[in-house]
């Protein structure tokens, strides 16, 4: 499903070079549920961005659905990202001028999908927010906003869901609700890669990856 071969990412600012990710190889199968842990600055987000096709590696190869990402042009990358990957961010990143429903419809709009409204309503129901469809982000709680963001990430039925500290801004009770939502989604066959600072939680995932200084320190099946 997803493969990284000797991937390196170096950020250069003038003469200063930061090795955010060093020579990292990793394989994730369809349906995996992977927790990514590691100290701050260890390269977790950098890794997620490369898997999510938002950023290109400095060296090495990324394969998504058996396609070598470096071979794709901008248009193909965009299409692959849209069709296979869903993103969830710590800050939710909902569009403040759009209702929950419109936020969920947005990826469907960009994909030119038919029946966007019905599909978005189904997704909102799926995350338990059918009553909040017409609310603006400013009228929702943090948990509701993140549920909306999850519904949005699921809009184009991605095979991989990438979540970078999705509960970082939520209290533990709300976080637990979000985690059980992720488990449900995973049980239905979606591959999930989630960055978290919660070691205990990560230990309950079928697979845990530990990063340190841009390297893969541990890769444990549990």
């Amino acid at each position: 499903m997803l493969k990284l071969n000797n991937v390196t990412k170096i950020y250069s600012r003038g003469s200063e070079h930061v090795h955010a990710v060093r020579d990292l190889s990793l394989e994730i199968a369809q349906g995996d549920y992977v927790g990514v842990v590691g100290p701050s600055g260890s390269g977790k987000s950098t890794l997620m961005n490369m898997i999510g096709l938002l950023d290109a590696p400095t060296a090495g190869d990324v394969f998504i659905a058996d396609r070598r990402v470096t071979d794709l042009d901008g248009r193909q990358l965009n299409r692959l990202r849209r069709e296979t990957i869903g993103f969830i961010f710590q800050q939710f990143l909902l569009i403040p001028t759009m209702t929950a429903l419109q936020n969920v419809m947005l990826p469907l709009y960009f994909a030119g999908a038919a029946d966007a409204k019905q599909k978005a309503m189904v997704l909102l129901r799926r995350v338990g927010l059918e009553k909040r469809a017409e609310h603006l982000p400013s009228q929702m709680s943090g948990g509701e906003m993140q549920r909306t963001a999850i519904a949005r990430a699921l809009a184009n039925k991605p095979r991989i869901l990438l979540a970078d500290e999705p509960t970082g801004n939520l209290d533990s009770k709300t976080a637990d609700d979000i985690y059980s939502l992720f488990s449900e989604i995973n049980r239905e066959g979606t591959t999930i890669v989630m960055v978290t600072h919660n070691q205990d939680l990560a230990s309950t995932f079928p697979r845990k990856i530990t990063m340190r200084d841009g390297r893969l320190e541990k890769n444990e099946k549990q």
């Binding site: 990202r81 569009i95 990430a153 184009n156």
Partner: peptide, 16 residues
């Protein structure tokens, strides 16, 4: 700008 980044992450093309 962030909204635009988000739109791109959710599959918006440059043209869109």
């Amino acid at each position: 700008t962030r909204e635009i980044g988000l739109m791109k992450a959710t599959g918006a093309s440059t043209g869109q």
